[in-house]
Nucleic acid binder design. Structure first.
Lengths: 244, 244
DNA sequence: TAGATTGTTAATCGATTAACAATC
DNA sequence: TAGATTGTTAATCGATTAACAATC
């Protein structure tokens, strides 16, 4: 079942490109706010932190929205990308798990400005149901299905502890949610047709640590920035490879 | 200057593999905690949410840590991966920007258990310097260089508003930090040799929205989960492509 | 027209995957 | 030895990049 309707098949945008469209959108919004009416692929690429060949290739999947010899109309291109992503209208979103991270997410102002609207905050802990966060009442987790149905919610955010995440995901899927953003450090299993993206703080830090370790061991002999306590030049064995 | 020392050149692990090692590490930790002494590539792959061919290929870059016909010793492989990533020792980390997100990050328990230790919380706002967050004093941003030098900090986390992020990054680089995790929705420019990874909530949501939109338009005619207010069947034009 | 810049081509590079020989 | 499972090969797939023809 990889078949799609003809209308869709016409535009098969590579995943890597899809992941960059929001970056271009932000760069264009920023250019528009600073009053720039047009820009070249070179300028936009630089604002987005990619090279211009990649940018032009990416945009070519959407259509021909530039003018040769001139560049792109910032406002026009911004709208075309927003439309392609699907953020010309707000998406209603629910957040489940209103701990520290849930608080931060609920207060995140970038939601509203970038195509999303938090319609409900849910938590299984009755102790939190008296609270208001970012002006929104925290409601019981069991209200999920009702809220999803009433508000037409398609996107759910999970910011619970790891051990609760799969149950929350199951409930979301049962309620009709088909896109999940998961902040819990837990691999989720969901039926086909449901998209899950994960944001994982400690994974990102570990990727940095890997590269950092290589930088440190490149300066062999002079051990700079050794991890561990300031006093600890001990215990370094095992981190550096044995000399040949 | 792509030359490396001979010791390093021996092990050139693809970036995609590096990004998955922390996932394997977590799966192994979880298996170890549940008392599982050994596992096959099939079992570990399933726990990590990848297919077993990819897992074995990934592990082959580290060495031969399994036993044919038997599988992997969970504890042994866990240690080998931790060593490869560089998290057999804690890395001291500073967090700059103690707003809602900074609070959540400071309180994040996964830091300690996964190879990181928050040694300082910094904020430019004097109003926050009286606070304690997660048992750590919030200190003035200008103390950055001193703290980095004293504690041997190599990794910095930016959780400021977008407009402050570049200045913070510049100060981090000047202080000697060479790995940055950026939560601010802002493209950072840093000198060569400094690694930046970004975590961007609204980008992740927009990627989900893109796919969600396609799912919705696949059910043409019956418009389910239309974004926008519950009452709004208006304003749908522009989101669906014109029929052929 | 001359200069500038897009959109596209084609080559290269890196990642994924299935299959299976090696070997416990 | 027979069965199981790794580590590796090779084919395929997708992403990146430079170069340039098209064209404003």
């Amino acid at each position: 079942m990889t078949e799609r309707t003809p209308t869709e098949a016409a535009r098969d945008i590579p995943e890597a490109t899809v992941a960059r469209l929001p970056v271009y959108l932000r760069a264009l919004t920023s250019l528009a706010e600073s009053g720039t009416p047009t820009c070249s692929s070179e300028e936009l690429a630089s604002a987005a932190g990619v090279n211009s060949a990649k940018l032009r290739k990416d945009l070519s999947y959407l259509g021909s929205y530039g003018t040769r010899g001139v560049g792109y109309d910032v406002e026009y291109l911004r709208y075309q990308i927003a439309r392609e992503i699907g953020v010309t209208h707000d998406w209603p979103v629910v957040i489940v798990g209103i701990g520290n991270l849930g608080h931060a997410l609920a207060n995140f102002s970038g939601f509203r400005s970038r195509g999303f609207r938090v319609v409900a905050l849910l938590d299984a802990d009755p102790g939190r149901h008296s609270e208001q966060v970012a002006g929104i009442d925290v409601r019981p987790f069991r209200d999920l299905a009702t809220i999803v149905a009433e508000q037409g919610v398609a996107i759910g955010v999970i910011s619970t502890p790891a051990h609760a995440a799969q149950d929350v995901a199951d409930a979301m899927v049962a309620a009709g949610i088909t896109s999940i953003l998961n902040f819990a450090p837990q691999v989720l299993s969901v039926p086909e047709g449901v998209d899950v993206r994960k944001v994982d703080l400690s994974i990102e830090l570990q990727i940095l640590a890997y590269h950092q370790q290589r930088k440190a061991s490149a300066v062999e002999g002079a051990v700079l920035h050794a991890p561990g306590d300031a006093g600890g030049a001990d215990d370094l064995d095992g981190r550096l490879e044995a000399p040949a």
